[in-house]
């Protein structure tokens, strides 16, 4: 079972950036319904900055890749998504070593460290209608496949499917965190923008790893 290389992980972030750019208007529309109409602009600004940073100087190791991505998000996004996605990647980077590749298990553990960071910052619980509702099931699915001996690609695919299901499950929820919570009952009937961008994150990972060495 091949490890996931630094190149592939870099490609993951690039692909996430391009999915975010493609969905900028859609994410902002979702945020218009129950927030302040900026989630697309925020994520796009942040990921464009991440890709630019990586262009300037290629990452030296997997920890460097994610720490720099996280720091760039923290310092360019603002809003709720900046600290949350930023902390997510910072913790992921910190949990990894200065390696040139990671195993599926190590990646899973790193992602979970990221999730812990999100929880620490945002204090969301399951069902609060936030990105947590896509992130948590995605990681559970990832770990399940990885623990059962699946490849990173298989784990990523399962994570993507779980993130999508988690995203879709936010629709009927009444928000209890973030701006959508101000709407009370009126927040029900809309997808959470952050859960939707989180599903894109796992779509990017799935697409990156599918058919790669990590799928073997």
């Amino acid at each position: 079972m091949a490890d996931v290389s630094l190149d592939l992980l870099t490609e993951w972030l690039r692909r996430f950036q391009s999915l975010v750019a493609d969905n900028r208007v859609y994410l902002t529309e979702l945020d218009s319904a129950i927030g302040d109409a900026d989630h697309g602009a925020n994520m796009d600004r942040g990921m464009a900055a991440v890709v630019a940073k990586l262009q300037e100087a290629p990452p030296t190791a997997v920890d460097d890749l994610f720490k720099r991505a996280g720091m760039t998000l923290v310092s360019t996004v603002g809003g709720a998504s900046g600290p949350l996605y930023g902390t997510f990647f910072l913790r992921l980077g910190t949990s990894l070593g200065a390696e040139s590749s990671v195993t599926a298990e190590a990646l899973g553990a790193g992602l979970r460290a990221g999730l812990e960071g999100v929880l620490q910052r945002g204090k969301a619980e399951a069902g609060d209608k936030t990105m947590y509702d896509a992130l948590a099931p995605a990681l559970d699915a990832f770990d399940g496949v990885a623990a059962g001996g699946g490849t990173a690609a298989q784990a990523a695919h399962a994570a993507f499917e779980a993130a999508v299901a988690g995203r879709d499950a936010t629709e009927p929820l009444v928000a209890r965190k973030g701006r959508a919570s101000y709407l009370g009952e009126r927040s029900a009937g809309h997808l959470d923008p952050g859960a939707t961008s989180t599903a894109l994150l796992f779509q990017a990972l799935d697409e990156t790893l599918a058919g790669s060495a990590a799928a073997e």
Binding site: A37, D38, R45, V74, S75, V77, G78, G79, P83
Partner: peptide, 8 residues
């Protein structure tokens, strides 16, 4: 940015 908190 418009309606977006500044960064740390």
């Amino acid at each position: 940015e418009v309606f977006t908190s500044p960064t740390p």
